[in-house]
Design a protein around this nucleic acid. Structure first.
Lengths: 216, 216
DNA sequence: ACCTGAACACCGTTCAAGT
DNA sequence: ACCTGAACACCGTTCAAGT
């Protein structure tokens, strides 16, 4: 006999983190509460604290799992960049959380993982040791920043009525910006309207790569 | 006669935002609560809501004020970068908040301000219009990412006993990272130990600038 | 050891009442 | 119009009690 809300598996850190990721994906950062988590896992709040020290650790673990999966096997920088681009699109909450992780001291799991994955490829490009840090962080920060901003835009598109055009999205993003005071911004937005987001993103990666080649 | 908790000035949006920045600077993000704010301003919670829609708007306004002041008059990219570097060091909470602002749709005041300031300088470099967006976002994301991470590190130093050496800081940042699984990260940390943070940061800016010159 | 769930301290926000 | 501050709904975390 099975009860109506039977516990399929024993509670574990892994099951808790998986449930957290599912909640973050479907409800956003605000959706991850201990109430929602205990309901989904059919357990009590204390049970979760038996596997995880506090909510921050849960968010870190969620981010690390997704980042680790996205980075996957070693690959050239453009491939790593696109994998993160896709991961951020799939998990929009990840952009902000990666920002939190990079600012965390001492370093958690996400920061060394990113540094290592991109760094090994920078080394493979033939960059001398003195340039490793500069080159790696330049790539990393561009990739995470640009991919994060793109993810936020796309998450907004999904929230608009499905008939909304790409133009309407841009008008929505543009918002209340005063065109008079921001001539450059206005020109850039008009120009981006016609470009493919992914190509635009890769152009930025190539720009940083060109800088690496020019300097080292 | 003056009462003991006299109200020096009438409440205004500006005074509220100033108090918020002061609280954020001294207590961190966690220190900005309506309780602390009402105490500091000697008022009630409702009074604040009469000038500001909700806490998010308060954080946005705080970030915009600081960013606007940091950007100041137009200047070449390296100067803008250093101004932001210093501003983030002085206001560590700003790093995370800028991340939030860049992900906000529709755009708030911070994003167009940053895009405009850097963009005008990119244009001045002679970059053709098709490269404006790519070049500007590449610079912007590197500057904000690198400066933010540096700010987080320095905020941690300030929290350590004043006798703590730069080496001890690095050991603290390094934390529990397993050297075996992260050979590149280990090498980079050892190398960064001996460099000046600000020069390191500027080297990254120059790397991106070299990329811009190489591509356009 | 692992789990339950009521209790606690704290938070952002609202609103009837005051001036 | 501007302000007061108690009340409300909600949140993360704790802990005595159960198995």
């Amino acid at each position: 006999v099975t009860s109506r809300t039977r516990r399929t598996e024993a509670l574990s850190r892994e099951r808790i983190v998986d449930a957290a990721v599912a909640l973050l994906d479907s409800e956003g950062v605000g959706g991850l509460t201990f109430k929602a988590l205990t309901q989904r896992l059919a357990t009590g709040a204390g049970a979760i604290y038996h596997h995880v020290a506090h909510k921050d650790e849960l968010l870190s673990a969620a981010a690390e799992g997704v980042v680790a999966e996205a980075l996957g096997e070693p690959a050239e920088i453009r491939v790593l960049a696109l994998r993160l681009y896709d991961a951020l699109e799939e998990h929009p909450w990840l952009a902000t959380q990666i920002g939190v992780e990079l600012a965390r001291v001492p370093w958690g799991g996400v920061t060394p993982r990113l540094l290592e994955a991109f760094g090994q490829q920078v080394r493979a490009l033939g960059v001398p040791e003195r340039g490793w840090f500069t080159a790696t962080t330049a790539v990393m920060h561009y990739v995470l920043g640009a991919a994060g901003q793109n993810a936020a835009n796309n998450a907004t598109v999904r929230g608009l009525p499905p008939t909304a055009s790409r133009s309407e999205l841009f008008d929505h993003v543009w918002g209340d910006v005063d065109p008079a005071g921001f001539p450059f911004t206005r020109a850039v937005v008009e120009q981006v309207r016609e470009h493919d987001d992914r190509e635009q993103f890769l152009a930025g990666v190539d720009l940083v790569l060109a800088g690496i080649r020019a300097v080292y």
